[in-house]
Computed example of a mutant assay.
Amino acid sequence: MEIVGWILIIVLFAIGMAGAIFPILPGALAIYFAFFIYGFFISFEPFGWVFWTLQTLIVAVLFLADYAVNAWGVKRYGGSRASVIGSTVGVIVGPFVIPGIGLLLGPFIGAVIGELFAGSNTGQSLRVGFGSVVGLFSSIVVKIILQLVMIVLFIIWII
């Protein structure tokens, strides 16, 4: 059973890391769930309240940072609330509507449309769309770093 547990843990870690790039995957929650798999299949003994507190805080920061960093990118380039909403919708819908490049085009198009609805000119809307892509890449970097921290803490705790 221990081997099955490790296979599941590795798969969940892989899904979690892929989720840093593809927003349709559960990301941090997959990594968090892997800790429970370890506990059920191997042992909960290495994990105390400090481990669970740190990991839960990281997951909370990841959820907040995901939205905040993307919004920062849009706002940094002069975007309105409408373009933040459009960019967020684009991140979620883009990969489904435009497979392959929808992850990049979705937030860009969403932000541009949102900014046009807010009354900005085309040049400003395109600038904000670029900002949404900057925010997306910044968000991905933050998620990768924090999710790697989660995995490293797990390894440190079980050694």
Rank of each mutant, 00 (worst) to 15 (best):
M1V: 14
E2G: 15
E2A: 13
V4D: 12
W6F: 10
I7Y: 09
I7V: 14
I9N: 00
I10N: 03
V11K: 05
L12R: 03
F13N: 02
A14R: 05
I15F: 15
I15K: 07
A18H: 05
A18Q: 00
A18S: 09
G19D: 03
A20W: 01
A20L: 06
A20K: 03
I21D: 07
F22R: 00
F22N: 06
F22C: 05
I24T: 10
P26R: 00
P26K: 03
A28E: 12
I31V: 14
A34K: 01
F36I: 11
G39Y: 06
F40E: 13
F40D: 12
F40S: 12
F41C: 07
I42S: 00
I42N: 01
S43I: 13
F44P: 06
P46H: 10
F47Y: 15
F47A: 08
G48H: 03
G48V: 08
G48P: 06
G48I: 10
W49I: 15
W49Y: 10
V50L: 09
V50R: 09
F51T: 10
F51H: 12
L54Q: 13
L54V: 12
L54K: 12
Q55H: 15
Q55I: 07
Q55M: 12
T56V: 11
A60G: 08
A60K: 09
V61Y: 04
L62V: 13
F63G: 08
D66G: 08
D66S: 04
Y67W: 05
A71P: 00
W72D: 07
V74C: 02
V74Y: 01
K75G: 02
K75T: 00
Y77K: 11
G78D: 02
S80W: 00
A82L: 03
S83C: 04
S83E: 00
V84N: 04
V84A: 06
I85Y: 03
G86H: 03
G86L: 04
T88P: 04
V89I: 13
V89Q: 03
G90L: 10
G90D: 02
V91Y: 03
I92R: 05
P95Y: 02
V97K: 10
I98T: 15
P99D: 07
I101R: 08
L103F: 13
L103M: 09
G106K: 02
P107F: 14
F108Q: 08
F108N: 07
I109R: 03
V112T: 04
V112Y: 14
V112P: 00
I113M: 12
I113C: 12
G114S: 08
G114C: 11
E115R: 01
L116M: 14
L116S: 09
L116I: 11
F117H: 10
A118L: 01
A118C: 05
G119W: 12
S120C: 08
S120I: 01
S120H: 11
S120T: 05
T122P: 09
G123H: 13
Q124E: 12
Q124C: 09
L126P: 11
L126I: 15
R127G: 06
V128L: 07
G131N: 11
F137N: 01
S138G: 14
S139V: 03
S139G: 12
I140D: 13
V142T: 11
V142W: 12
V142K: 06
K143T: 07
L146G: 04
Q147Y: 05
Q147H: 04
L148R: 04
V149E: 11
M150G: 02
F154D: 02
I155F: 08
I155N: 10
I156Y: 08
W157K: 11
I158H: 06
